[in-house]
């Protein structure tokens, strides 16, 4: 890894990638010189063709994988990571699944139970505490997964296409609710998606990645303020932004 000069403290990003490359053992180059930064309290989405290294980006940010080259800086006390699958433990009830990460982090029991209750409330699953994952719909499982991470009150939140497997209506609802959480907790979010609408609706900036080996090719700033009404999806400005992102996606 090469060292780059530290940014001045006032502009310290929650998450910064500088010239990050990733070459797997089998020779696959997933990323070449990826640059990106997410400021504290900023919501950034990443779109890009399938297989361009989006998941790899998040795995490196979370420490699950190591970058082969470049510098990764994460300034965070607690990183949340939501996978594409809900990855719930099938033998645990909703309540016990939501409490899992807090349990692994040895959080005090009283505190944990309080936060679990709040998180379940936040994702609208009150009344389902005793249900097993098997008894939930895909959307509800994803809510449990979100709640599980929320319990740790992360200041950096990584999302790997969390709503990719859901139908359009459920996805939009969860988008609305995710923004509600974001406004409440103001974490720094790096959100991966296939859906251009989802990207524009959620984020302050949309990063477009090139095909493999991936790097950030273009950036679209979304000027809407938070909180965002669900109806902005139908505005002309929203459509124009989506068009712009789609255009970049076609060009890469």
């Amino acid at each position: 890894m090469t060292m780059t000069t530290e940014p001045p403290p006032s502009t310290t990003a929650a998450l910064r990638f500088s010239g990050v490359s990733k070459k797997f053992k089998d020779g696959t180059v997933a990323l070449t010189g990826a640059d990106l930064a997410v400021a504290p309290g900023e919501f950034v989405t990443v779109v890009g063709p399938s297989g361009c290294g989006k998941s790899t980006l998040l795995r490196i940010a979370s420490g699950l994988d190591k970058a082969s080259d470049g510098e990764v800086a994460v300034h965070s006390k607690s990183v949340g990571y939501v996978f594409q699958d809900a990855t719930l433990l099938p033998w645990r009830t909703v309540r016990d699944n939501v409490g899992l990460l807090a349990e692994l982090e040895h959080m005090d029991k009283k505190e944990r139970e309080r936060r679990v209750r709040d998180a379940i409330d936040l994702v609208g699953l009150t009344g389902f505490e005793k249900h097993l994952p098997m008894e939930l719909s895909g959307g509800m499982r994803m809510r449990v997964s979100l709640a599980r991470s929320m319990v740790l009150a992360p200041d950096v939140f990584l999302f790997d296409e969390p709503f990719g497997a859901l139908d359009e209506i459920t996805r939009e609802r969860l988008n609305d609710e995710l923004l509600r959480m974001f406004i409440q907790s103001r974490f720094a979010a790096l959100f991966i998606t296939h859906s251009v609408q989802e990207a524009v609706f959620l984020s302050g900036r949309v990063l477009v990645m090139s095909g493999r080996p991936g790097r950030v090719k273009a950036e679209v700033t979304v000027p809407f303020d938070y909180p965002r009404a669900p109806e902005i999806r139908y505005s002309a400005e929203f459509a124009a932004l989506c068009g712009e992102v789609s255009q970049y996606l076609r060009d890469v």
């Binding site: 609208g124 009344g127 719909s137 959307g139 509800m140 459920t170 609802r173 909180p227 009404a229």
Partner: peptide, 24 residues
């Protein structure tokens, strides 16, 4: 399940979407 009335203006009612039903 209770619906959070305060936030209902900013965001639609909390809770599973119409399509999301608990398995019978």
């Amino acid at each position: 399940m209770t619906v959070d009335v305060d936030s209902a203006a900013a965001a639609p009612a909390v809770g599973p979407a119409p399509g999301e039903v608990v398995a019978p």
